[in-house]
Amino acid sequence: MTDWLIEMLVRHGAPILMLVTFLSCLALPVPASLAMLAAGAFSATGDLTTGSVAGAAFGGAVLGDQTGYAIGRAARQPLLRRIAGRPGSARLYDRARHMIEDHGGTGIFLSRWLFSPIGPYANFAAGIARLGHLRFTLWGALGEAVWVLLYVGLGRAFADDLTMAAQMAQDLGGLTIALGILAVAGLWISRSMRRHRRHRASCPGRG
């Protein structure tokens, strides 16, 4: 898959990169980070131009985000109809919608590059929860710019050994996901400990 993708990238250039980043925004399993690294490396050798590589990756990603958002919006009504009879799901949906309203912009920005595996689902969620379109587009484009610059830049900087650059990118990705889980678990523990302490303070008779 990898060799084939790189071969296609070399043969057809930027349009392949655009297609890959587009599909990756719709939760399809395509190695977008690797494609950007490889394209970055080929821009350093002079086989591709940096402008076309960065432009294609960015354009594909922004188009993909918009498509994901539109899918979310289209799925909104059927979803609301489905959860209408279930109070538990409706409550969960309400909580998620409030969270997206409060922190949606930052969430969209960070899920473009730092926590990119959840990016496509954030697009769908933003569409379903009706996050303002302009807000979604601006934060999304800013995040995609960081994502593209990061990976194309990494590909250019470590162009002499693409295999190692890919390993490095994989490690960086793994590290950020592990750090994210660490933060969420830590927050979860500290919050429920606080709740536990409050609960004990309010009813001292129970241990």
């Binding site: 080929f42 050798t45 086989d47 162009a159 002499d160 050994d161």
Partner: peptide
Amino acid sequence: TPRYVAMS
């Protein structure tokens, strides 16, 4: 590509 080998 030949250019890639040359750079590496």
